[in-house]
């Protein structure tokens, strides 16, 4: 790969293949921890760290791990790195550790990470996998920041915990609660649909294709059609 394509491995995650807005993966933390920028950035960076480490290790072991047990192996590796990040944050960033609470441990089951392990790291060389992890992690962080910016500014009248004049006295309180999370996420996905339509690409839909469990889903009789498939393209 030349230098350009290496760069594109990193940057594709930012917008073109943004894991949240285009691939629609990792919806749970996207709604749960984006009530403020502090939580969003720390969650994004924690997940990025896990993603880079797990991608690296899985890529290094890609020829050793038998196909049959690859998902359990990936999960153990990811859970290990999540615990590592948890311990380090508990020790050195206790406030953020308290803030993220259970969602930190739940990075383990964030489908972005398992998805990248399955889709990319297990098929590519270590350096590329690290770059992919970095790009996807930062893309995830960017998405969380977008969500948190809207919710914190209009929901709390603050930005990074600092009061904004006027808005502070005119907050839309429900944006900081879970319904607000669903709403803002829905609106941002709609925006992403508009952009995709302009570029002549299919609209984002729930990340079944990227999900390592897609095969199981289909065998369960849940088709892509069930997975919130947009009808926009058919009109």
């Amino acid at each position: 790969m030349d230098k350009n394509s290496k760069l594109s491995v990193v940057t594709k995650g930012f917008l073109k293949e943004n894991p949240v807005f285009v691939l629609v993966l990792g919806t749970c933390p996207t709604i749960a921890v984006t009530t403020g920028l502090v939580g969003a950035v720390s969650m994004g960076l924690a997940a990025t760290a896990v993603l880079i480490c797990s991608n690296l290790v899985i890529s290094l072991l890609r020829n050793i791990i038998p196909d049959k047990v690859r998902i359990p192996c990936f999960i153990v590796i990811i859970a290990g790195f999540v615990t590592l990040v948890q311990m380090l944050m508990h020790a050195y960033l206790p406030d953020l550790y308290e803030l993220l609470g259970i969602y930190l441990a739940l990075i383990t089951v964030n489908c972005i990470i398992l998805g990248r392990a399955e889709m990319f790291a297990s098929k590519n060389r270590p350096l590329d996998s690290v770059l992919d992890g970095l790009g996807m992690g930062l893309g995830f962080t960017i998405a969380l920041i977008c969500m948190a910016l809207i919710r914190e500014v209009f929901g709390k009248g603050q930005i990074w915990g600092v009061d904004i004049p006027f808005l502070k006295d005119h907050t839309i309180g429900f944006l900081t609660k879970s319904p607000g999370g669903f709403l803002v996420f829905g609106l941002l996905i709609a925006l992403s649909t508009v952009i995709a339509a302009k570029q002549g690409k299919p609209a984002p839909k729930l990340g079944c294709a990227q999900c390592p469990q897609a095969g199981i889903c289909r065998s369960a009789g849940v088709t892509d059609d069930d997975c919130a498939k947009t009808e926009g393209g058919n009109d």
Partner: peptide, 16 residues
């Protein structure tokens, strides 16, 4: 533009 996922999420917001 709301068909599919966006309107589903907004409906989820209302139920929530």
């Amino acid at each position: 533009v709301f068909r599919g996922l966006p309107v589903t999420l907004i409906a989820a917001s209302v139920v929530s």
